[in-house]
Design a binder for these strands. Structure first.
Length: 673
DNA sequence: AAAAAAT
């Protein structure tokens, strides 16, 4: 290969020195069965070290300025936050001497103060008052100061936090919110404080932290792959065939990747060939690396803007995803691959200080990982320009294009600076992709894009053992406690339908002495990240979540998913249970099915179960038969769409016209296959 | 009903 040495002078992109030597250590990469279309292909190409100037990146760590740190509760949560602080509701929150949570907080309209009990703070502060959620009484959101304590510790981390530690742990959290002159906001007269995220851990071990592939990893090779479109590049079988530079090879190995998954085998050469791509592959099968690796490789070859402070930065790559935590996860993954190169990834999302996002970007930005709202905000402030944009990635693409995010995506694509689709590469990845959304996606993609499907579009991962239990809503709490007590300390994600119920169940489980935390959109950003950290670390083996955590999150050792409430869309179900059974590991998913509310999902659910070779309860089939699925009138996408009906579009059939989102209103009245 | 910008 002729590209082995050009990057050897490059220094650590965190501002550190030259990289220590690292020997790639590919694990046993056995010979894989090669399918007919998987002939190896060489992507070694002439490499010019353009733009690779070995410049050090700017320092990523915030340098103080932590005065002003409360997430702004949007979506009306702020509107009623103080009104609901009636006696008897959330009173348990006011413990530990009026901690910051009780004081600043009730940020979620008085809810959300459920305890997250730590090992050393394990008693209900409100005397163990039992809640009766289903009886429509909303009491007993007892709280513990436990996570407040830990939170203060964790988010301190570096310089600039000194002196706060004692105050928080002492429970006098309000001092935390007093301005001591180091903040840029310092507006403590008002209730608005914006959270500044902690600097990401950046020791090399932290950066490359990963978990092991599971016993079923090799079974990925048995899954059928369908690639449609013209002039399909051949798949590659090994990382070596991708013709990557040495630094990237090292980073890939160090990040724990040794064997390609099917979606990677096909997507990497497609992206390297400069093609647009829509790719569907099961949850946990390596989609993120499937786009990051080839993008990084291309950027290394073509060169990127030097890392230096500029008022406006012009990233070569923008990656969007539907939740803040997912965007952060993608960022952390991109940081692995970019380590020791001149490519600087940056992450920005809401619930944090916009100024912090801006500063991060201004220090240099080649890959921008962002949630849509903050991205548009930053674009509007002209802190990023799009003239150098060459890669636009929509992770969880179906979600990014549906009713919720579609308008934001349209704004992004319509930005005057956005290169037309023929001058950029647009990549979309998801485990699910309803047909009508595929159709919308065509607006973003070149006519001749390629469509990769691993297995079935919208299919569940077969490494997840799925169980459906008929449980009425009134029995859910007892059943949940029973199951969790049987599970023991194994990591479990519990999904519910509403934020309120997330709080309720988290509180309930804490009362049952099960170490639980929760994540949902009405929690402060810092609380969300704290919850995720406590779950990841095992400190809280149970995470109660809304669908905010349904997609993309890659958490080690999640062995169980419990759907206390089934989602209304079967695609959401597929994503939720996909939090377990990742990367060749196995997992279990148990779902409570209440015929009173869930009959609409019975039929598509049966399809998903059957396609994943799971047992289908006879009672469920009876319910499905009874719930006549005649309606395509149901506004909810996917309600009755069978997995089988979703087929890959042939690329020449993608030349549909029609305005973006306008076509959303017209159902599948055209034949797409 | 969840989520995505702040204000």
């Amino acid at each position: 290969m002729d590209d082995e040495d050009w990057d050897t002078e490059i220094t650590d992109n965190r501002g550190g020195g030259a990289l220590p030597a690292f020997q790639p250590n590919f694990q046993k990469s056995g010979s894989l069965p090669v399918r007919a279309n998987e002939t190896s292909s060489v992507f070694g190409r002439s490499v010019k070290p353009a733009g690779v100037d070995g410049k050090q990146n700017g320092e990523e760590k915030p340098t103080g300025g932590f005065g002003n740190r409360r997430s702004f509760g949007n979506r009306g949560a702020s509107g009623n936050r103080f009104e609901e602080r009636n006696p008897g509701f959330g009173r348990g929150m006011i413990d530990g001497g009026d901690t910051y949570r009780g004081r600043r907080g009730s940020i979620r309209g008085g809810r959300g103060g459920h305890g997250l009990f730590t090992s050393n703070d394990y008693e209900m502060q409100d005397g163990g008052q039992q809640s009766s959620f289903f009886g429509s009484k909303r009491g007993g959101f007892g709280a513990s100061s436990g996570d407040a304590e830990n939170r203060g510790r964790r988010f301190r981390g570096r310089g600039g936090y000194k002196g706060i530690n004692e105050e928080v742990i002492g429970g006098a959290g309000k001092s935390l919110w007093k301005s001591d002159g180091d903040g840029e906001g310092g507006d403590f007269a008002g209730p608005k404080v914006t959270y500044i995220p902690p600097p990401p851990p950046d020791s090399e071990d932290d950066i490359f932290a990963h978990y092991q592939t599971g016993i079923n990893f090799d079974k990925y090779d048995n899954i059928l792959v369908e690639v449609s479109g013209l002039d399909r590049p051949a798949a590659i079988m090994t990382f070596e065939e991708a013709g990557l530079c040495q630094t990237l090879i090292k980073n890939i190995a160090r990040a724990g990747y040794s064997k390609l998954t099917p979606v990677q085998k096909h997507s990497i050469p497609i992206v390297l060939a400069g093609r647009d791509l829509m790719a569907c592959a099961q949850t946990g099968s390596g989609k993120t690396a499937a786009f990051l690796i080839p993008i990084l490789a291309q950027m290394m070859q073509d060169g990127v803007s030097a890392t230096q402070f500029k008022e406006q930065q012009e990233p070569e790559c923008i990656i969007v995803a539907p939740t803040r935590e997912l965007v952060n996860q993608i960022f952390l993954e991109s940081r692995k691959f970019a380590y020791g190169t001149c490519i600087r990834p940056v992450v920005v999302y809401g619930g944090t200080q916009t100024n912090h996002s801006v500063r991060q970007i201004q220090q240099g930005c080649n890959i921008l990982c962002a949630t849509p709202g903050r991205l548009l905000d930053i674009l509007g402030r002209e802190k990023i320009g799009l003239s150098k944009l060459r890669y636009l990635v929509l992770d969880e693409a179906d979600r990014m294009l549906d009713m919720g995010f579609g308008p934001d995506m349209k704004k992004l694509i319509s930005n005057p600076g956005m290169p037309p689709k023929d001058e950029r590469q647009t990549l979309m990845f998801s485990a699910t992709f309803p047909e009508e959304i595929q159709r919308l996606a065509g607006e973003f993609l070149k006519i001749e894009y390629l469509f990769v499907v691993v297995g079935q579009v919208g299919g569940a991962c077969s490494d997840v053992q799925q169980t459906i239990l008929q449980v009425s809503q009134y029995d859910k709490r007892d059943k949940l406690v029973e199951i969790l007590q049987g599970i023991g300390d194994k990591r479990t994600m519990v999904f519910v339908e509403t934020k309120k119920k997330a709080d309720f169940f988290a509180t309930l489980l804490c009362q049952e002495k099960i170490k639980t935390t929760s994540i949902h959109g009405d929690r402060e950003q810092r609380e969300r990240e704290e919850a995720l950290h406590d779950f990841r670390s095992g400190r809280c083996p149970v995470l109660v979540a809304t669908s905010v955590a349904a997609r993309g999150l890659d958490i080690e050792n999640v062995q169980h998913v419990i759907n206390v409430d089934l989602p209304s869309s079967v695609d959401d179900y597929v994503h939720r249970i996909g939090r377990t059974g990742r990367c060749g590991n196995i997992g279990k998913a148990v779902s409570f099915f209440d015929p009173a509310t869930d009959s609409g999902i019975a039929q598509p659910l049966i399809k998903v179960l059957a396609d994943a070779q799971q047992e289908v309860p006879s009672w469920l089939e009876e319910i499905a038969c009874g719930s006549c699925p005649v309606g395509f009138s149901n506004p909810r996408r996917n309600m009755f769409a069978s997995v089988d009906s979703r087929k890959a579009f042939q690329s020449k059939e993608n030349q549909h016209s029609g305005g973006f989102l306008a076509s959303n209103t017209s159902p599948a009245d055209e034949s797409w296959d």
